[in-house]
Nucleic acid binder design. Structure first.
Length: 139
DNA sequence: GCCAACGTTGGC
DNA sequence: GCCAACGTTGGC
């Protein structure tokens, strides 16, 4: 299973809101970037991802799972924009901050660091394991 | 198909 | 709130 990372400004959509929608899940709409969209198109049911709070917090706060394959974004009339649905699985024991990620040389190549503006990112298996370790949660 | 202008993201 | 980075748009 591939691993991913989803960014959201908690002002707009927070982990608490995502958690409140579990287990049904929620459409990850609003992405208007080709690379982020292509990442969502590549997702499979059961793929897991980190839920990251951008701007406020700047930390990974939970783990989500893809529960619907890529489909047209209901918030757009433009057929270019698709998105998946995700549901909250569990919070991390300790939030993993951007500063912690940057401070860990093993995570230097993480997209969170190298592609700061990409809102839906791939995560390698090794990065997944290390972030889970930092967050005190089972990979 | 290039590239300048513009808009947005997101860390600080 | 600022601004750097960078993705997108649109004129040529």
């Amino acid at each position: 299973m591939a691993k991913w990372l989803f960014k959201s400004e908690p002002d707009t959509w927070s982990w608490a809101q995502q958690l409140a929608k579990a287990p049904a899940g929620e459409e990850w709409h609003g992405v208007r970037n080709y690379l982020a969209r292509n990442n969502m198109r590549a997702m499979r049911l059961g793929d897991q991802g980190f839920f990251y709070h951008s701007n406020i917090g700047k930390e990974i706060v939970g783990i989500v799972e893809v529960c619907a394959l890529s489909h047209p974004d209901s918030t757009s009339d433009d057929p270019r924009w698709d998105c998946v649905d995700i549901r909250a699985l569990r919070p991390v024991t300790r939030p993993v901050s951007l500063a912690m990620v940057k401070a860990d040389h093993r995570l230097a190549k993480m997209a969170l660091v190298t592609c700061a503006r990409l809102s839906v990112q791939p995560v390698t298996d090794e990065e997944w394991r290390i972030v889970c370790e930092l967050g005190g949660v089972e990979p």
